[in-house]
């Protein structure tokens, strides 16, 4: 019987868990080769980032100009993802859409993760009146359905993918804050943190060396999900009638708008939908392995 070392590892008492020396990097590379899924995930993500940076390298079709003779062509060697109603190449639209989608996602995650984590950390670590005040505010935001918040933000700022991302980010701050605080509370009560105090660590030192790294795990997990959530929220708002101005392609919107044709022409929503799923799963896989690396 072999038991994975990490599942049985004792809690990271030392807290100095960062690999990074040249030898460790080499070792990581070797390990990577043994994990085909992880390699595939990296390739997926890198390719998609490539699309976002230089779409022209990946497709010769225009995402905006269609060929009216090729309306709703099914996937083929010529059009990998098929074409849409106006005869536009869907693969090209997906490739060009990567830029909008990734930027929006990054924005949403940064807002939610950045603000939420800091707020949760402050609340959990300082306690007392600060904690109470901050958490009551968070409660209010949690209590208002995020969809309402998102719709209002979009209505006020105008229809664009960036604004939707902003809306999604803002409406997720509260949940990040809350999870972060719960984690901080748990960590602060752990024996090893108390031990760290006992060994003469100052508050900031304990915060940085023990509380932050050990609390972030759950929040990072949430952030990995947020990547998917952000894209999907854009799709959902598109489904409800709010979306980026045409003809700008965007993944969520491609899926949302293609659904009307799903009975007769499934590819306009399913091909981008599959890609979306693939990217979210790949991102998650990478974040999981990253987290495990940092545990050791």
């Amino acid at each position: 019987m072999t038991v994975e070392p990490d599942t049985l590892a004792a809690p990271a008492l030392s807290g100095s868990a960062r690999p990074g020396s040249g030898r460790a990097s080499l070792r990581r590379l070797g390990e990577l080769a043994q994990q085909p899924v992880l390699v595939a995930s990296w390739i997926t993500v890198l390719v998609v980032i490539g699309w976002a940076v230089a779409p022209r390298l990946f497709t010769s079709y225009s995402p905006y100009n269609g060929d009216s003779a090729a309306s709703f062509a099914p996937p083929s060697a010529e059009h990998w993802f098929g074409t849409d109603r106006l005869g536009r190449d869907l693969f090209a639209r997906t490739v060009y859409g990567a830029h909008t989608t990734l930027t929006a996602t990054l924005l949403a995650v940064l807002i939610a993760f950045g603000i939420g984590t800091v707020v949760g950390l402050i609340a959990g670590f300082s306690g007392g009146i600060v904690d109470i005040a901050v958490m009551r505010l968070v409660d209010v935001f949690l209590a208002i359905p995020s969809l309402l918040l998102a719709m209002v933000v979009v209505s006020v700022l105008g229809y664009s993918t960036q604004n939707i991302a902003l809306a999604v980010g803002i409406s997720s701050i509260a949940s990040f804050a809350r999870v972060m605080r719960a984690e901080v509370l748990t960590v602060v009560n752990q024996d090893y943190v108390k031990a760290a105090y006992g060994l003469g660590g100052g508050r900031p030192a304990v915060l940085l060396r023990h509380v932050v790294p050990n609390s972030l795990n759950s929040v990072i997990a949430l952030a990995a999900l947020e990547v998917g959530t952000a894209v999907l929220a854009v799709a959902s708002l598109g489904f409800l009638g709010y979306g980026a101005p045409p003809p700008q392609p965007e993944w969520g919107l491609l899926v949302a708008e293609g659904r009307d044709y799903v009975a007769t022409h499934p590819w306009p929503s399913i091909m981008p939908g599959l890609l979306l799923a693939l990217v979210v799963v790949a991102t998650h896989r990478i974040s999981t392995s990253y987290r495990k690396e940092h545990r050791r």
Binding site: G273, A277, V281
Partner: peptide, 10 residues
């Protein structure tokens, strides 16, 4: 070959 979520969709 594919992750499950994608497999189900397929």
């Amino acid at each position: 070959k594919w992750p499950w979520g994608a497999g189900i969709v397929a």
